[in-house]
Write a protein that binds this DNA or RNA. Structure first.
Length: 586
DNA sequence: GCGCGTTGTCATGGT
DNA sequence: CCACCATGACAACGC
């Protein structure tokens, strides 16, 4: 429908299907945009009466022209439609009312190279245009099922001979208006979009396409609208048919056998059932795209990185030192500097072991270590970047050189240590305890840098800092491992944050897609109901037109024997259906 | 003691 | 080749 809002996000296939359907609906139903121009239609209505007067004068001339045109048509036995013949003939086709058996349906109308459309084709077109309702809507039983569906819905053209036929002045004004309404009904959904559903003023002000020139003569047209049309349609066409309401209904047979309801049931026997049960094409369909509207940006906004302020470490230093943790992660103090994996280098000759007594000793006098190595402190201020990283306690952890030569704890020792009874304080601050592990190791190896510096200094500064100190292999290995672990820890934190943000974004996206699906489902349901109503009104109008068509004997035309065909230029033809059966009998 | 979440760490692959 | 980053996997820890 016109009120469809284009998805803000990337259109999914489901969206595109629906849009395509609705787009075709607007185009294929055979009306130009000007049909819905209210002012244009008003102007046309005013001109209509003048044209009617002129039509009276031209009626006689048009009759003769009709004879000439019909003479150019020949019966196609396969489709029962008129086929333009190269050379005019003198048969009785010029009087279709008197010789209906000789009128045939034009097969060319149904094969795309002509623009005439029968009512059957209109219904086929509707069924094809709205696969949501029914993918392959069966033709009504009373219609010629052999008529192929019109495949070229948008570019129907008239053969060269047909324009001569449309000059036939056979239809009085009311029928003319009725046919305008019929075309209007074909575009009913567009009308509803423009003026709201069932706006009688709009519906009545349809433009004059001079249909009356192309319809067979209706010398005794009567109206049965009061019996045949739904109340809303009577309201819609009160103005249109005001000049013929006085006429007496003379087609009770049609009313009885082809009332609007019955007619609709014939044409759309399972419309409602299928509309309710037809699987939704979007069910389970992809819902790709449409994500632009998702405010993922805010959700995915990177969180602030965890503060790496060295002060955090300093505040816990005493506690951590008091409870020197296990070295399960191991010291990367391998004899070989190439070995960077602490777990694999645990058993190096440079490993440092810490006993509880050692821990207590370090805890007892942490500050004394700084005083023992005062010459190392200036290093902390070599670079600007390192200054802010300097903890208030300076983080310099130095131990006696002999500790370096002590056997390093291996993994088993570390695990055994971890299984030793922990104090409650340590259990509270696991992270700080883990973080202090590297500090303790650095202190054990007398690394003259803080862990924060080791981790956070840029590469150049870090290398410069390292170059200014002669560190042995265990110290270099430990520094490298501390830096590696520290950076990896931050990376892991960022990675986990991103993961959580992605999860949140996906959850939000899922909610948005669910809402979009629900909205589209409601829209589809509304479109289906609108289509159903449009078809019903079209059927009613079709029957109403038939009720007013009379032959020269005053007999009504039967919808079972005749069908109405309309061209894109508004020309309407009354074409008999019976030729198909005759052709089959042959 | 078990389950679950958090955190640190390692291994690995990519840049 | 090295440094760095990203990430899965694992283990320790805390609740």
């Amino acid at each position: 429908m016109m009120e469809i809002e284009l998805p803000k996000m990337h259109p999914t296939q489901q969206d595109m299907d629906l849009i395509d359907i609705l787009w075709r609906q607007d185009i294929d139903l055979g009306a130009g945009r000007e049909v819905f121009d209210f002012s244009y239609r008003q102007k046309e209505v005013q001109l209509q009466r003048q044209k009617e007067l002129e039509e009276e004068k031209r009626q006689q001339i048009r009759r003769e022209q009709e004879k000439a045109l019909l003479a150019q048509l020949q019966l196609d036995e396969e489709t029962g439609e008129f086929v333009p013949r190269p050379t005019p003939t003198s048969n009785g086709l010029t009087q279709p009312n008197t010789a209906p058996a000789e009128i045939t349906q034009n097969v060319a109308f149904t094969e795309g190279d002509v623009d005439a459309m029968s009512f059957d084709e209109c219904m086929q077109l509707l069924a094809e245009t709205f696969p949501l309702v029914e993918p392959a809507e069966s033709a009504p039983p009373i219609l010629d099922s052999s008529i192929p569906p019109c495949t070229d819905n948008t570019h129907l053209t008239m053969p060269g001979e047909i324009p001569m036929l449309i000059q036939n002045p056979l239809l009085p004004g009311p029928i003319d208006q009725t046919w305008m309404d019929l075309q209007h009904c074909l575009n009913f959904q567009e009308i509803m979009d423009i003026s709201g559903y069932g706006n009688p003023a709009q519906l009545a002000n349809v433009q004059d396409f001079n249909y009356s020139q192309y319809l067979p003569k209706l010398s005794d047209v009567t109206t049965g609208t009061g019996d045949m049309c739904p109340p809303e349609f009577m309201n819609t066409y009160n103005g249109t048919f005001s000049n013929v309401n006085h006429m007496r209904v003379k087609t009770p047979d049609i009313n009885e056998s082809f009332g609007p309801d019955e007619f609709c049931e014939i044409f759309y026997p399972d419309l409602e059932a299928k509309a309710n049960t037809a699987p939704l094409p979007c069910e389970g369909g992809s819902t790709d795209g449409q994500l632009d509207e998702l405010p993922n940006a805010s959700l995915l906004k990177p969180m602030d990185l965890q503060s790496l302020s060295p002060g955090n470490f300093s505040t816990e230093k005493n506690e951590d030192m008091a409870e020197f943790p296990d070295s399960d992660s191991g010291l990367s103090i391998d004899a070989s500097p190439k070995t960077s994996s602490p777990g694999k280098s645990m058993h190096g000759d440079c490993s440092v072991g810490f006993s509880d007594s050692d821990i207590d000793e370090m805890e007892s006098s942490p500050g004394s270590m700084e005083s023992d190595y005062p010459e190392l402190f200036p290093l902390m201020f070599q670079s600007d970047s390192s200054q802010h990283l300097l903890p208030e306690k300076s983080g310099v952890t130095l131990v006696q050189e002999d500790n370096v030569t002590q056997p390093k704890k291996d993994q088993a020792e570390a695990s055994g240590h971890s299984k030793a009874p922990f104090t409650k304080d340590k259990q509270k601050r696991r992270s700080e305890g883990r973080l202090s592990r590297d500090e303790e190791r650095a202190r054990a190896l007398k690394i003259p840098f803080t862990v924060e510096m080791i981790i956070n200094l840029p590469v150049d500064d870090f290398n410069e800092m390292m170059s200014k100190h002669q560190l042995n292999e265990p110290q270099l290995a430990l520094v490298r491992d501390i830096r590696r672990r520290g950076k990896n820890k931050v990376a892991a934190q960022n990675c986990r944050k991103r993961k959580m943000e992605n999860i949140m974004g996906l959850e939000y996206e899922l909610d948005s897609l669910k809402e979009e699906k629900e909205r589209l489902m409601k829209e589809k349901s509304k479109n289906r109901s609108n289509l159903k109503e449009m078809k019903q009104q079209l059927s009613s109008l079709y029957l109403e037109v038939f009720s007013m068509l009379k032959d020269e004997q005053g007999k009504p035309y039967s919808p079972t024997d005749y069908s109405l065909q309309q061209t894109t230029d508004g020309s309407v033809f009354l074409v008999p259906r019976i030729k198909k059966t005759l052709a089959k009998s042959n």
